[in-house]
Simulated scan of single mutants.
Amino acid sequence: MSTIAIDLQYLPNLEFFCAIWEAEEIWLCSEDNYQRKSWFNRTQIKLTNKVETLSVPIVGRRPRVPLAEVMIDYSQNWQKNHLRGIQSAYGKAPFFEFFFPYLENVFEKKPAYLWDLNLGFLTICLKLLQRPVKLRKVEKKAIVQADVDLRWLLRPGGDFSDRKYYQPIPYLQLFGLDFEPNLSILDLLFCEGPSARRLIQKSIKKE
């Protein structure tokens, strides 16, 4: 599989990485319109008693606006809340101290647009996973040339088990006895460190 077109996620979940793992190029189209109830501005982490959704606030309702024009609302103290939530969830994880500074660095850049924030996080996550894949920004008309188009298919409203990309492979999480699948890549990185790459490969659903 050579090229996969997909929409950006905020700190993407495991299904996202399973879906793009074998691609040589990932195509991203900033001309696509923003869609509510997507992963574009939200992710999920595991706290002591629950799975918590972290959402990035955006300026206005943003109906039918290109992704590249969705602005982050910095009037809300969301960055501090997200960092505190991540620290609370994973501060005692084995690889927290190693990976957390990379996240802080992306947050501190405070990009105006959510597209740039998500792209920054995707770039660093792929680096931490040691997955050398080319990220390419393409125009909407070029998407038809992609080998696979996954834009807006991986949505919060659907069940990942109904799709063909991710099968949960349990690993040791910090809280609770029950394994929570398909959380943000942060959960896997902080808990498993260098083993995260191998676990993603094992989690790719076989057709």
Results as ranks from 00 to 15, higher is better:
Pro101Asp: 11
Thr53Arg: 09
Trp21Cys: 03
Glu31Asn: 12
Val70Phe: 00
Val133Gln: 05
Glu207Gln: 13
Ile86Arg: 04
Ile169Gln: 09
Ile86Gly: 00
Gly85Val: 06
Gln167His: 14
Thr123Arg: 14
Leu172Asn: 14
Pro156Cys: 11
Lys134Thr: 12
Asn13Ala: 02
Leu177Arg: 12
Thr53Tyr: 00
Pro66Phe: 08
Ile200Asn: 00
Tyr166Gly: 01
Lys137Trp: 09
Asp187Tyr: 06
Asp187Leu: 05
Leu14Ser: 02
Lys206Leu: 10
Asn13Ser: 04
Gly158Leu: 14
Met71Trp: 00
Glu31Gly: 07
Val51His: 01
Glu24Met: 09
Tyr90Glu: 00
Tyr74Gly: 04
Lys50Met: 14
Leu174Ser: 13
Arg61Asp: 11
Val148Thr: 13
Leu83His: 09
Glu52Arg: 15
Gln201Pro: 02
Phe95Ile: 07
Leu14Ala: 05
Lys50Leu: 14
Trp152Ser: 08
Val65Thr: 12
Asn33Trp: 09
Pro168Trp: 02
Glu69Met: 11
Trp152Gly: 01
Leu126Glu: 02
Tyr102Leu: 10
Pro12Trp: 07
Gly176Thr: 10
Asp147Pro: 08
Gly60Asp: 05
Asp116Arg: 09
Tyr102His: 15
Phe175Pro: 03
Ile20Cys: 10
Arg84Thr: 15
Lys206His: 10
Gln145Tyr: 11
Pro168Arg: 01
Leu177Pro: 00
Ser30Val: 03
Ile6Trp: 09
Lys109Tyr: 08
Phe99Gln: 08
Val106Leu: 11
Lys80Pro: 00
Leu128Ala: 03
Arg61Asn: 11
Leu11Pro: 01
Asp116Glu: 14
Ala146Arg: 06
Leu8Asp: 04
Pro66Thr: 08
Leu11Met: 15
Asn13Ile: 00
Lys141Asp: 13
Lys80Tyr: 13
Arg62Asp: 11
Gln130Thr: 08
Lys80Ile: 15
Arg198Asn: 11
Asp147His: 14
Gln79His: 08
Phe107Val: 09
Lys202Thr: 04
Phe100Cys: 09
Leu47Pro: 05
Leu83Arg: 13
Tyr165Phe: 15
Ser30Thr: 07
Asn41Glu: 06
Ser88Tyr: 10
Ser88Phe: 06
Tyr171Ser: 06
Ala196Phe: 05
